[in-house]
């Protein structure tokens, strides 16, 4: 690990000032991703701003008809919160599908949003990587790309975002609240993470001098018909090859509002609103689900080792929509897929 200085500001305002005064600083809270990356010399901050104890960010509170989850709420606390379980079980399920109990205890809501990719080349400073070192190249395209993206890639980067939580937040249309030197602003989940384009080093639209305050969930609508289906190389404690968050409003067999977000396939949680619209007013039916899956995967392209993901994602969407329509969400303990 490189050498760095450390500060633990006592208020959000002090933290923002501290960050503004140190351009090469990084924010640390749980540290589960940052410390790991620092040990690999992928991240080399000269200064750490410890936001882990900032007051007012550890609460889960009512926010209008929705719920606000503070940036410092641990993944465990969010997943097991009674209000989250009752009103946003999709979020609870997605969080529990990720990492291990130890990591979920340490990891925070804000930190989960800012997780970096698990691309092998990004993690290995001995290899080029446009995300780690802009302009150095992307060996993943012709290399070991089994775990990498099939949608929204660019010639510069085919990394995926590794979070499960974020896939559920995207489907639920959560809004990320942030604060910087110019005050607070709100970023809808759809705009929070970026596609790589020609700036793969930039994962999100959060500015370098901004701090996440929390996420706001809108009015709950999908507490009955939802699922988080995660497919991976081992049944627990592994990143998704493909995951699907599906949420439906159902009136008998007829679908109302529908949301589908995919994880493990792109640089951000992948949503195609046009595909969701195809479900509105339709009877829940496998043929309809197949057409929706086809639309979501339009333009999907593998890079060799990850070619299988296109078909896997298509099938996962169909299965997830069936689970959601039936009201039988995927169990995160019993991994058999019904």
């Amino acid at each position: 690990m490189n050498r760095f200085s450390y500060a633990r500001p006592g208020s959000v305002a002090d933290a923002v000032r501290e960050l503004a005064g140190h351009p090469a600083a990084k924010v640390i809270a749980g540290g589960t991703n940052l410390v790991d990356l620092m040990k690999y010399n992928v991240e080399r901050p000269t200064h750490l701003v410890d936001v882990g104890r900032l007051p007012g960010l550890k609460e889960i509170e009512e926010a209008g008809e929705g719920l606000r989850i503070g940036a410092l709420v641990s993944n465990t606390a969010a997943a097991y919160d009674e209000r989250v379980k009752e009103r946003y079980p999709l979020l609870s399920s997605a969080i529990l599908a990720g990492a291990s109990p130890q990591l979920r205890n340490a990891a925070t809501t804000g930190g989960n949003l800012l997780q970096r990719t698990r691309c092998y080349y990004f993690y290995d400073p001995a290899t080029p990587c446009n995300k780690r070192e802009p302009g150095s190249g992307c060996p993943a395209k012709n290399g070991q790309n089994r775990i990498l993206a099939i949608l929204g890639t660019s010639e510069h980067c085919i990394a995926t975002h590794p979070s499960d939580m974020c896939v559920a937040l995207a489907a639920l249309e959560a809004v990320v609240k942030v604060v910087g030197p110019n005050g607070e602003r709100s970023i809808p989940m759809a705009d929070f993470h970026r596609l790589p384009g020609n700036m793969p080093e930039k994962d999100t639209n959060l500015h370098a001098d901004e701090i996440i305050l929390g996420v706001e969930l809108p009015e709950p609508r999908f507490a009955k018909h939802y699922t988080y289906l995660k497919l991976r190389d081992r049944l627990s404690y592994a990143f998704a090859l493909v995951s699907v968050a599906a949420a439906l409003e159902m009136d008998g067999d007829t679908i109302g509002e529908a949301r589908i977000a995919l994880g493990g396939v792109a640089h951000k949680p992948w949503r195609v609103e046009e595909a969701e619209m195809m479900l509105r007013g339709k009877t829940a039916d496998r043929r309809v689900f197949a057409a929706v899956a086809e639309r979501i995967l339009e333009g999907a392209q593998g890079f060799g080792h990850n070619d299988f993901k296109v078909d896997l994602a298509r099938r996962a969407v169909i299965r997830a929509l069936s689970q959601a329509a039936r009201g039988t969400p995927q169990s995160q303990t019993d991994k058999r897929i019904q």
Binding site: D36, N105, A106
Partner: peptide, 10 residues
């Protein structure tokens, strides 16, 4: 928690 990922100072 994993003590390997926790900086002692935090």
């Amino acid at each position: 928690m994993n003590s390997c990922l926790a900086l002692a100072v935090t």
